[in-house]
Amino acid sequence: MSGAPDPEALARVVAATVGDGSVVDLRRLSGGASRETWSFDFVDAGGARRGFVLRRDPGEHVGDSDRSTEYQLIRVAAAAGVAVPRVLALLRPEDGLGRGFVMDRIEGETIPRRILRDDAYAEARPRLAAQCGEIAARIHAIAPSSLPALPGLDAAAQIDQYRTLIDTFGEPHPAFELGLRWLAERVPPPPARPELVHGDFRNGNFIVGPDGIRAVLDWELAHVGDPIEDLGWLCVKSWRFGVADRLVGGFGSVPELLAAYEGAGGRTVDEATLRFWVGLGTLKWGVICIGQAFTHLNGLVRSVELATLGRRVAETEWDLLQILDGGW
């Protein structure tokens, strides 16, 4: 798909669920280099407005991403009491809008620097770490039997995956080699029963209001594996957006997160296990940054933003070395 979605086609998709009306104020939301996100209002016959979001694959399809899995997963999460946007409709080929789905637009902020700095969220911030713990516990408690087919990805498989990716890029990163050795020596025992892992559970994927977290977004990297991965990823330094001393998303502390996680039924997490997953998450983000730079360098998507991510890899190398040295 290129260009804006056809408002009339979009109106037909929404009307099938909520009755006749028209699409207004269609605009692309910033962010989301890998997915297109469009916001629009739907005005029904009586003049009432409701906000929606269209999330779809951009351009030519790259990889084997599957919006229908994400759509189903959000429905399962909603049924389990996880705060997510209500999904309205999965796009069908005959809709002519590409691959994606329509969901409710939830008002609030997703931009991490605003969440961490704006006065509007001053009262919410001290509560966010505990909310993350509660939400994560709820996600991890979802019965695997209720899930759509998801890839299995445990710690050892991820280490192998990132080592292979690093070799594919052919760029030497001695810090990552030190990290891979360190991680391989510390692989935690896999959970007795693999659980749902959100896969991108971090500041930037939460809709936050003055009352706290209203919804968890971006379920496209969900898999089954070790749920502590989500907690480690949440604490990766890149997701603290400059508030480095608040280990959890730049807004809270590890004890707050873990106490709430346990209190809501999550398992007890020791520091060494969390450190392993923060380390693996840091390496993962570094490898993703290399990949994004090569998406540009290989000509797949030319973008100054993707190009400069190649030079942010050094930040993740620095962070990883800190973790190896016992820091956070």
Partner: peptide, 22 residues
Amino acid sequence: AVRDHVRATVREKLLVANPGYL
């Protein structure tokens, strides 16, 4: 010695890429 060298090298990369990160 390897770790010290790697740390120094990453530091040097950041002096170019983003000195404010250090």
